[in-house]
């Protein structure tokens, strides 16, 4: 298909991009274009103006900021996946990025774009939720921070306003996190039929805090509050994990789609909460 007619600009500075967005309510930000362009070609979405941010300097870094790492708007999936910083301090996100799409998609799509796109079956949002990430949104009026837990609003809907650019994702360092999923083509290939990310902190043999999140099972990537409640304060052993598995979809609306019944997806949510937790807890030892 061919998109409807649209205007295209590629500003070279963030201010210019934000100014363009402020004065064009029908404008849409494009970073990697991996999700936006297919939607436009199918004419499911027809913005009047595309603001391509790919030529803005300074948005392509992964930085160590002491207690957290910051991933800029133009960092591609493959860079997130290969980054030693991310692998060490946010293993769940590194895996999620490595299992996003195929090589071509990973070479162009951006981690921030995956967050902003908020697909129900996307990988990296689950990792961001479990790791307790913070999204930094800029507009011509200034900058605001949005907790990951408040960022994913609904199907393909994030908390970003139309005049905002997600300039970076900040991930608090975690030495014990993991992501696992079942891809639509089996194994880790393709969007998640269901997947889960987990991050834990242990102190004195006890799980002192945890973040657990699901993807693929409902209308958005979402926190698994029941599982968190079940695991915190335990020794993180097999029984404790089983307890977390049992509560994986507590409070989560599980939906059927082409890839599975609600029953199957709820079951998978538990399986992957279990697997992600096992790996995260093993990493903490």
């Amino acid at each position: 298909m061919f998109p409807r007619e649209f205007e295209y600009v590629a500003p070279s500075s963030l201010d210019e991009a934000l100014g363009t967005l402020a004065s064009n309510p029908g404008a849409k930000v494009m970073s990697g274009g991996m999700s936006l362009i297919p939607l436009m070609k199918l004419r499911l979405f027809s913005p009047e103006l595309v603001v391509d941010i790919a030529r803005i300097d300074g948005l392509d870094a992964i930085e160590d900021r002491g207690d957290h790492i910051a991933i800029g708007a133009l960092v591609r999936h493959e860079e997130t996946a290969a980054s030693p910083l991310v692998q060490e301090h946010a293993a769940a996100l590194a895996s999620a990025a490595a299992w996003t799409g195929d090589r071509q998609v990973r070479a162009r799509g951006t981690t921030c774009g995956a967050m902003a796109h908020a697909d129900i079956a996307a990988d990296q949002p689950a990792a961001a939720l479990a790791l307790g990430a913070t999204m930094v949104a800029a507009s011509s009026g200034g900058t605001r921070e949005i907790a990951a837990a408040d960022f994913f609003v609904d199907t393909l809907t994030s908390a970003l306003e139309t005049n905002e650019i997600l300039t970076e994702v900040r991930i608090p360092k975690s030495s014990a996190s993991a992501y696992d999923k079942l891809g639509r083509r089996g194994g880790h290939t393709d969007y998640a039929v269901a997947g889960a990310a987990a991050s834990v902190a242990m102190s004195g043999g006890t799980v002192s805090s945890a973040g657990i999140a699901l993807t693929g099972v409902g209308t958005k990537p979402t926190l698994a509050a029941g599982s968190v409640e079940a695991i915190v304060g335990t020794d993180g052993g097999a029984d404790a994990i089983a307890g977390a598995v049992a509560r994986a979809t507590e409070g989560v609306t599980v939906l059927e789609d082409l890839y599975g019944s609600a029953e199957y997806k709820a079951h998978l949510a538990g399986v992957y909460v279990g697997r992600a937790l096992e790996q995260a807890i093993a990493a903490s030892h």
């Binding site: 195929d102 083509r185 089996g186 082409l258």
Partner: peptide, 26 residues
């Protein structure tokens, strides 16, 4: 054997009319 199926719903809509929902082997 593993993935492919042209799925029509009860109204005859082809639900797998694109490569997102019709995965081919690579």
């Amino acid at each position: 054997a593993l993935f492919e199926e042209a799925i029509y719903d009860d109204e005859g809509n082809l639900l797998t009319a694109g490569l997102i929902d019709y995965p081919i082997v690579t």
